[in-house]
Design a protein around this nucleic acid. Structure first.
Length: 119
DNA sequence: CGGCTGACGACCT
DNA sequence: GAGGTCGCCAGCC
């Protein structure tokens, strides 16, 4: 099994509601749009925990639009097998988002949502 | 304690 | 643009 940190603990920068907070923000991303791990971290007031946003999404429920979260370069982040998720690509494609041969989203800067809600 | 590892990101050549 | 380096934080040896 891949290593998946729990990210819980009362005295941690990343507190016990971390997952819930991340999920709540992800649910606000409109269909056909995307945002980044870093933007979500920043919305939480924790700019330095972009990586943890990714870890949290590893535990995302199936109904969460986790596929709308990509890295700051607009590409699909590689998983444990160092390959981007085919499932993520399918889900995005289904929303009209196209990805080029180098896993980069077409018109990323246009589709990117930066004004995320602050919990 | 020290080292290593991540669905990351900002910088520097 | 393509690589490489470092900082970041929590968890697990």
């Amino acid at each position: 099994m891949p290593y998946t940190p729990t990210l819980h603990g009362p005295h941690r920068i990343v507190g016990p509601n971390f997952h819930a907070s991340v999920f709540a923000i992800v649910r606000t991303i409109p269909r056909g749009r995307v945002t980044t791990y870093g933007d979500i971290a920043a919305a939480l007031g924790l700019r330095t925990v972009a990586r943890h946003v990714g870890f949290a999404l590893a535990a995302a429920p199936p109904d969460l639009p986790w596929h709308r979260v990509v890295n700051s370069r607009g590409t699909l982040s590689p998983r444990a097998d160092s390959q981007p998720s085919a499932e993520q690509r399918r889900r995005l494609r289904r929303e009209g988002i196209t990805i080029d041969s180098r896993h980069r989203i077409t018109d990323f800067s246009r589709l990117r949502v930066t004004d995320l809600p602050r919990p």
